[in-house]
Amino acid sequence: MTPTTPQLGAIKTALFALCLVPAFLLWRGLEMDTLGANPIEALTRATGEWTLRFLLITLTVTPLRKYSGWHWLVRLRRMLGLFAFAYGVTHLLTYVWLDQFFDWHAIVKDILKRPFITVGFAALVLMTPLAATSFNAAIRKLGGRRWQALHRAIYPIAVMGCVHFWWLVKKDITEPLIYALITAALLGLRAWWREQERRKQLAGGYLPQPRFESKVIKIFE
């Protein structure tokens, strides 16, 4: 099943609208005062969680594509990754603006002194070059292989996101644990694929496939 170009356009539009729903609901919650007694904390928490969710959704695209055979799914990946970045920036903004109110001294101290903030901030910094090289020209300029190597940074970014969450909770680690398990599964899957490939290679029946180079160009045409 491969959608036609207009169909894919419609799917992308629908997905874009869907990705905006959490932001819309938070905005409305803020306006209607339904985010509870501590709306700033609720907003910071929600934007952070959505960043992590979008990272994990982005990481689900490849396994989904692989097992369903729907290779067109990869064409949705850039948008999902960019939404992860957008929610991440919003998360940082709620912290810098609403939580610390541009108290740069306190912010810098927090980033350096609080491991959970250090990790979270580093993860967002690492996401920036990925977002900056997400457009087609950047891919062409970098070349598929280098571009892909850079974008594998999403693996440590997702791990850092989980650590950031884990370290901030006071005691009940249920939620960060769920995210960590999903992340472990998604990354474990990739490690397993790699191992399969290595074995195939060792068995001698391996023919290098030009899969990445050709696919990357094709995907983002």
Binding site: A37, L98, D99, Q100, F101, A106, R114, P115, F116, L168
Partner: peptide, 16 residues
């Protein structure tokens, strides 16, 4: 050990 105790947010207030 994981966060500062220098400031607080009074519930219902915007600035700390």
């Amino acid at each position: 050990p994981r966060w500062s105790q220098a400031t607080e947010r009074r519930i219902g207030e915007f600035s700390k």
